[in-house]
Computed example of a mutant assay.
Amino acid sequence: MKLPTELHSLAKKVLQLEAEAIQGVAAALDERPDFAQCVEAILARRGRVVVTGIGKSAHIAGKMVATFNSTGTPALFMHAADAIHGDLGMIQADDFVIAISKSGDTPEIKVLVPLLKRKGVPLAALVSNADSYLAQQADYILHAPVTREACPHNLAPTTSTTAALALGDALAVCLLESRDFSRQDFAGLHPGGTLGKQLYLKVGDLSRQNQQPQVSESAPLRDIILEISGKRLGATAVLNEAGELVGIITDGDLRRMLTAHAGRLDEVRARDILTPGPVTVEVDDFAVEALARMQARNITQLLVTEQGRFSGFIHLHDLLREGLV
């Protein structure tokens, strides 16, 4: 068993090797025009991007497909071995195929490529060896050069799969940008879970479920306490005679007031203890923006406005309930 310091050094070495591999892929982009041409060719197709591979490359292909689908590029995974046993039928005339193989010379790939060529669909080769059989047969070469694996025996796919994965991500992001794929588009494809809520949940969706504690500037202390206590949000908005928001009074303001105004509590009015210029958020802002403002100011509630007028409150508990915290 290696010592903790040895394991730490080994882990850093692996990460360094993989980082260098990605830098090598970035440098290789300058050597040939295929990457940009590949992006343009995919955008010109009306079908899906079919990504194939075998072994560890198949796992990378699956991840690429997931990323493509979630960022606006319809995609399918096809295992290279299964393709020659019926799965080739998933490829349609207007599809685009990306084949992933470090060597580009595996037996399965050599069997598959002629069948793909017979289909007449464009083929991109994501390879480490740009002189391989796959690269020579492909219409586009996505070059991910790797000099050695991070595996000490230079056998287990490590740096090569990392390089392929990174290049696949670069391809997906370029397609995303080229399609003007927006935050709203992304939300439409990710409606579930915390990620979905971050992308579509609005402040108004939560604040409308809460009560709307509010008092006038001239409200006496008794009314302020009843409003805060009765509506259970820990604060109340303060409005002027025109119904405009002028401040906020919180539980903390009440406690501080007891010290500052001791002996003359019957004279206290809302205007005497409010905090002017409170932090607000609009009903149409995303809920995550409300969370960011609370965290930045270390507060637990925000006043909500609609076109500048008081609309209600959003509380940290609302965000906790939705799993955003």
Rank of each mutant, 00 (worst) to 15 (best):
A170Y: 10
I141H: 05
S207V: 04
L189A: 13
D87G: 05
S216T: 11
L319R: 06
V121Y: 02
Q198L: 12
G312M: 05
T147P: 00
E177H: 14
G323M: 10
R222H: 02
G53C: 03
N154V: 07
V173G: 09
H190F: 10
M257H: 05
F310V: 15
D34T: 04
F181R: 02
E306I: 00
I22Q: 11
G204R: 08
A290V: 08
N210C: 05
P152D: 05
A11Y: 12
I273N: 04
G252K: 01
F186H: 00
H85Y: 01
H317V: 08
L274R: 10
R48H: 07
T236L: 08
G89V: 03
S178Y: 00
L167K: 11
M90Y: 01
G24P: 02
F310W: 10
T236R: 04
L116P: 14
R255H: 13
N240G: 01
L274Q: 15
V14I: 15
D205Q: 02
R269S: 09
D272L: 00
A83E: 03
D266Y: 11
V268W: 04
L316A: 08
L195A: 04
I98S: 01
G263L: 11
G204Y: 08
A164H: 11
V304A: 15
A144W: 11
D285N: 15
L3Y: 04
A27N: 06
H79S: 01
K119I: 02
S103F: 04
E31D: 11
L291M: 12
K202S: 08
L3G: 00
A75T: 01
A296N: 09
K110C: 05
S218V: 07
A170L: 14
L239H: 06
Y140C: 03
R32L: 06
T250G: 05
V325H: 09
A66G: 03
M78R: 03
M78Y: 05
T236M: 03
Y133C: 03
H315L: 14
A150L: 07
A124R: 11
G104R: 06
G192A: 13
Q137I: 00
Y200M: 08
L134M: 01
K197C: 03
K63T: 13
C38W: 07
S9A: 15
E20R: 15
A262H: 14
G193F: 12
P74H: 14
D94M: 10
K2A: 15
